[in-house]
Design a protein around this nucleic acid. Structure first.
Length: 263
DNA sequence: AAGAGAGTCAACCGCGCAGGT
DNA sequence: AACCTGCGCGGTTGACTCTCT
C-alpha cells in the first residue's frame, strides 16, 4: 500500500515560524479543517499535510489549554491511564482543551516516572483516591478499548437490530446530542447513560460549551465503541460471559460506565 | 561563568484503519 | 478484491531550556 505524497515537494521540517502559523490559521479560518494533504499547497506552506494537521490540533486550534495541569486533571489522567493504558487520545477526550500529545508528554515526564516508583505510585493513588492496579506493568490487564469507527453501521438496520439485545447505540461521530436520529436510539435513555459519567467526571472542567454541545462527544462515543470491543472480548463464541467480575480493572470499567456488569 | 546532564515538549515517523474507487 | 487516499494514533526524536556542579 504505497503512499503518494502530494505534489508539493521539499517540505520544511522542524519548528514552525510565526508566519507559517498565520498562513495556516488564515487558511483554516476560511476553509475549515480537513483535506490536510491539500492544505499546504493551498495555504502556501512548505509543510506536509500531517505536519499542518498536527500543528493545528496541538497548538493553533482555539481552546487548546496551555500551562500546568491542575490537580483535578492530574487525578483524572492517573485514573484513566490505569483504566485505558496509553490511549492518549481517549484520555485527552476527558480533558477538554488538552491534546493527546500534551497528556502523553505530561505522563512521560511526570506521572509515568512517579508511577514507576512504588512510593510514587502510592502518592498517585492517594491523590486519585482509587485502587492500586493489580499489575500496573502487566499490559494484559488493561482494557484495550479499541476505537472502532462505526459510521457505516450506525445506519445499518440489521446492525441496529442486532444491537437491540445489547443496549448499544452506535453514534456516527461527534454530534450534538439532539442530532442523534431517533432511529438510532436503541436505548431511549442512552444519551443520559453515555454522558452521565461525563458529567460526573468532568463537568467541572467545562465540558459543555455555550451551545450546550458536548465538547468531546467523539471520545465519549469512542469509549462506547470500546465497550463493544469489550463485549466481544468478554464473550466467547457461544456467548458465555467470561468477564472476570472480580478484577479491579473490570470493576472500574463497570462503575465508570454504570453498566452494572451487564450488557 | 561555563560546561554537562537532565528535563521538557513540539514535531516527526511509521503504522493501521475506514472509506472510496 | 485490490489498491489508493485521508486521517488519526502511539512511540520516538531532537532542539531548546533549566539546573547543577
Amino acid at each position: 500500500m504505497g503512499r503518494k505524497s502530494h505534489s508539493c515537494e521539499g517540505f520544511n521540517k522542524g519548528a514552525w515560524t510565526a508566519n507559517e502559523d498565520i498562513l495556516l490559521i488564515n487558511y483554516i479560518n476560511i476553509h475549515g479543517e480537513g483535506k490536510w494533504t491539500t492544505v499546504p499547497c493551498k495555504a502556501g506552506l512548505k509543510r506536509s499535510g500531517k505536519s499542518c494537521r498536527l500543528r493545528w490540533l496541538n497548538y493553533l486550534r482555539p481552546n487548546v489549554k496551555r500551562g500546568n495541569f491542575s490537580e483535578e486533571e492530574n487525578d483524572l489522567i492517573v485514573r484513566l491511564h490505569k483504566l485505558l493504558g496509553n490511549r492518549w487520545s481517549l484520555i485527552a477526550g476527558r480533558l477538554p482543551g488538552r491534546t493527546d500529545n500534551d497528556i502523553k508528554n505530561y505522563w512521560n515526564t511526570n506521572l509515568g516516572k512517579k508511577a514507576k516508583e512504588p512510593s510514587g505510585m502510592k502518592k498517585l493513588q492517594a491523590a486519585s483516591n482509587c485502587l492500586l492496579p493489580s499489575q500496573a506493568t502487566n499490559k494484559t490487564n488493561l482494557i484495550r478499548t479499541k476505537a472502532i469507527r462505526c459510521n457505516k453501521l450506525a445506519s445499518d438496520p440489521l446492525f441496529l437490530q442486532s444491537l437491540s439485545t445489547s443496549r448499544q447505540k452506535i453514534p456516527t461521530k461527534a454530534m450534538e446530542v439532539n442530532e442523534i436520529p431517533e432511529s438510532s436510539k436503541v436505548c431511549p435513555n442512552l444519551e443520559e447513560e453515555v454522558f452521565q459519567e461525563e458529567e460526573n467526571m468532568v463537568l467541572n472542567y467545562g465540558s459543555f460549551n455555550d451551545d450546550n454541545i458536548v465538547a468531546f462527544p467523539d471520545q465519549a462515543l469512542m469509549e462506547f465503541d470500546g465497550l463493544m470491543e469489550f463485549e466481544r472480548w468478554m464473550l466467547n463464541d457461544e456467548g458465555v460471559d467470561y468477564l472476570p467480575h472480580d478484577d479491579d480493572q473490570i470493576k472500574s470499567l463497570i462503575s465508570l460506565f454504570d453498566i452494572g456488569g451487564e450488557f
